[in-house]
C-alpha cells in the first residue's frame, strides 16, 4: 500500500511511506448509535417536508415500515400531534388482521384516518384472483392512490419505502418529485446534497417523501424491538391455514380464495416478512414468535424480504415501471 499524508491546506505531499502505514483504528462506543442517527435523520426529513409543503399526508399501509414511520411522526412533532392525516388505500384484499389493527391504532392515537378504495374498481369487482396481480395492483393501488391524492389535494405524501428493498428504490431521492400525472422520471431527479431537500414544486406537481430511505430491514426490526412499537400479529409465527401455490405459501384469510381441485388448506407454523394483499403475499415457514427470534431469523435469512411479493416479479424492472405509472 502506498499512502501519504498531507497537512490541511499544505502544498506538497510528504514522501511515500515505505512501510505501508496503516491508518489507526478506533473502537469506542459512539455517543449516538446507528439507530439513534437513523431516527434523528427521519425526524429531520419529516419536519422539513411539513414545513415546505402545504398539504401533506402519510401513506399508512399498516405494515412494519408504516408502524415505524407512524412512531417517528409521533416523535417528530411531540408534544403536538402529527400535523397531517393518515391515508390507507384499501384494495379490499388486505389481511383481516391488518384492518383490525389499523382501526385500533388510529383510535388509540386519536389521529385522522382516511380510507380510500377505488370506486370504479369496486364496481367492476377487480381483484387479484379474477384479474391477476398486475391489473389488480394498477387499478386498486396505483389508480386508487392517485384518486385519493387528487380528491384531498395532497401535495406531499410520506411513504415507508426503503432503499434496500428493491433496485429502483435504491435509486430514488428522499424528496421524490412527481409530475402532474404522478409519474416518476428517474432521469430527472433533483440533486440532493447533504440534507438540503428541495420541497419546491410547480402547480400540479407533488412529492413523495421517504424518511426511511436509509434504513434496512434489520434496522426496522431492531428499532421496533428497542421502541416497543406495536405491529400486526401476522409478523409473528403461529399456526395458520395455508395453501402452497407457485412456490408461495398463501394464507386462506377468507372465503374469497378459491381452492384448486384437490387443494386442502394445511395448518402450518408461518409468519410474514412483508404484508400486502393476502393472495399476493407469501408466508414463510417459521417458529419465530418473539422479536428476538425475528431478529435472529432476519440475520440468518438467505432470501430477500420481497421474495414473497408476487407484484415485484410480474415483469423485469416491474417496480420501476409501476413507479413511473404513479405507484408509490
Amino acid at each position: 500500500m502506498i499512502s501519504w499524508r498531507e497537512a490541511w491546506g499544505g502544498r506538497h505531499a510528504r514522501a511515500l511511506d515505505p512501510q505501508g502505514h496503516e491508518p489507526k483504528t478506533k473502537l469506542f462506543r459512539p455517543a449516538l448509535t446507528h439507530l439513534d442517527r437513523l431516527e434523528a435523520e427521519s425526524i429531520y426529513i419529516m419536519r422539513e417536508a411539513v414545513a415546505e409543503c402545504d398539504n401533506p399526508v402519510m401513506l399508512y399501509s399498516i405494515g412494519k415500515d408504516s408502524s415505524v414511520l407512524l412512531h417517528l411522526a409521533l416523535k417528530a412533532f411531540y408534544p403536538a400531534k402529527p400535523p397531517f392525516p393518515l391515508l390507507h388505500v384499501d384494495t379490499t384484499w388486505k389481511f383481516r388482521e391488518m384492518i383490525a389493527f389499523r382501526d385500533q391504532r388510529a383510535r388509540e392515537l386519536g389521529l385522522e384516518l382516511l380510507v380510500h378504495t377505488n370506486p370504479d374498481g369496486l364496481a367492476r369487482n377487480v381483484g387479484p384472483i379474477t384479474h391477476g396481480s398486475e391489473i389488480h395492483t394498477d387499478v386498486m393501488k396505483t389508480q386508487a392512490l392517485k384518486q385519493a391524492l387528487e380528491r384531498y389535494g395532497f401535495d406531499a405524501a410520506f411513504g415507508g419505502a426503503r432503499r434496500d428493498e428493491e433496485k429502483s428504490r435504491a435509486k430514488e431521492r428522499v424528496f421524490s418529485l412527481r409530475n402532474a400525472h404522478h409519474r416518476w422520471d428517474p432521469k430527472r431527479q433533483r440533486p440532493e446534497p447533504w440534507q438540503l431537500y428541495n420541497g419546491r414544486k410547480r402547480k400540479g406537481e407533488s412529492l413523495r417523501i421517504f424518511p426511511l430511505s436509509n434504513w434496512t430491514e434489520l434496522d426496522i426490526w431492531l428499532y421496533i424491538h428497542r421502541e416497543n412499537i406495536p405491529i400486526v400479529p401476522l409478523y409473528f409465527a403461529a399456526e395458520r391455514p395455508v395453501v402452497e401455490r407457485d412456490g408461495m405459501l398463501i394464507l386462506v384469510d377468507d372465503e374469497r380464495l378459491p381452492l384448486h381441485p384437490g387443494e386442502q388448506p394445511q395448518l402450518r407454523s408461518v409468519r410474514f416478512r412483508t404484508l400486502g394483499c393476502y393472495p399476493l403475499t407469501g408466508a414463510v415457514e417459521s417458529t419465530a414468535a418473539t422479536l428476538p427470534d425475528i431478529i435472529r431469523e432476519t440475520l440468518e435469512a438467505r432470501t430477500s424480504e420481497r421474495h414473497g411479493r408476487a407484484i415485484d416479479k410480474d415483469t423485469a424492472a416491474s417496480m420501476e415501471r409501476k413507479k413511473q405509472e404513479g405507484y408509490f
Binding site: 459512539p30 389493527f101 431492531l222 422479536l291
Partner: peptide, 25 residues
C-alpha cells in the same frame, strides 16, 4: 397489544451490544 415482550435471549443481547458498537462508514 401485539408487541411480544419476549424473554430476552442472551444471544440477542450480545448481538445488540456488538451491533451498537459498530461504527458507520
Amino acid at each position: 397489544m401485539t408487541v411480544h415482550p419476549a424473554p430476552e435471549s442472551f444471544m440477542l443481547e450480545g448481538y445488540l451490544a456488538a451491533h451498537e458498537r459498530k461504527s458507520l462508514l
